[in-house]
Amino acid sequence: MSAISVRSLTKKFKSFTAVDDLSFDVAENHVVGFLGPNGAGKTTTLRMLVGLSRPTEGAIYIGDTHVTFGGSAANSKIGYLPELPSMYAWMTGSEYMSFIANLFKLSGGVKEKKITELLKLVDLTEAKNKRIGTYSGGMKQRLGIAQALINDPEVIILDEPVSALDPIGRKEVLNVIEKLKKNRTVLFSTHILSDVDKICDDVVIINHGKLVAAKPLAELKAQYATPLLEIEFATDPGTMAVCVGGEPWAKKVEQNGTMLKIWLTNTTDVEKNIPFEYFAKQGVGILSYGLRLPETEDLFVELLGGNHA
């Protein structure tokens, strides 16, 4: 059974269709990156998944539980962190965790143990007795993650969990997410595509509210991402970019100073050393020459035609 099933999900705001007949499944215990350019419908979809927004059409299942707008039947199975989470500023971090734990009917030693563990996990033990109103954006984000885990949810839904964080905070949060993948399903939206490469098993890509792809990341890269050849010359290669662009093995060329990036039509030509022989004949010193494995960003560009997140 899928951890999350989305079937023909549509959301209309008057004449604007934010999510258009979207269907995908998320496998159990997988970390899934939910990607798309700005305004693609990611947040709207996630808000429908947790019952905050009413679908115009379609159905959502968390495990075997049907998500109904305004209902709370599926809520005990999920942990949700909204983008830029807002919590009661007058509470301390510890009080907020206790309040959320009480809503899940946790009590006594179990509750205290869980709160202590989670605050330690998100590195907020020292700040637990400070008012949330005094927390930085990163601290709020980490507290938001801790509250999302209080009920040991089967499914964790995170909307841009690292976008407001500095590089160190981002790394910490990604480490937390990676630890979670052992026995939980995580669906998270992000603009930072390198993070997807680090921790995701699968990706769901949407654009204009429609599904573009929903597959294991490795499979998608193998299928779509164009191999990229990166060459660094000892001196400026001049107009070489224009010339290379006419070669049958070069799909697209980009020059940045002494650096040349060539998106290849396939890897076979590289294996036959055809590009290398071409550059060797040009008489410009080559400092480095290598084929880079396609990353999610390349995949994203390929699938969405340069319309970056």
Binding site: S72, S86, I100, F104
Partner: peptide, 15 residues
Amino acid sequence: ARKTLEIVLTKPVSR
């Protein structure tokens, strides 16, 4: 306005 109810309403809390 402050969005503080978003997290609470995704818990087992009836509206």
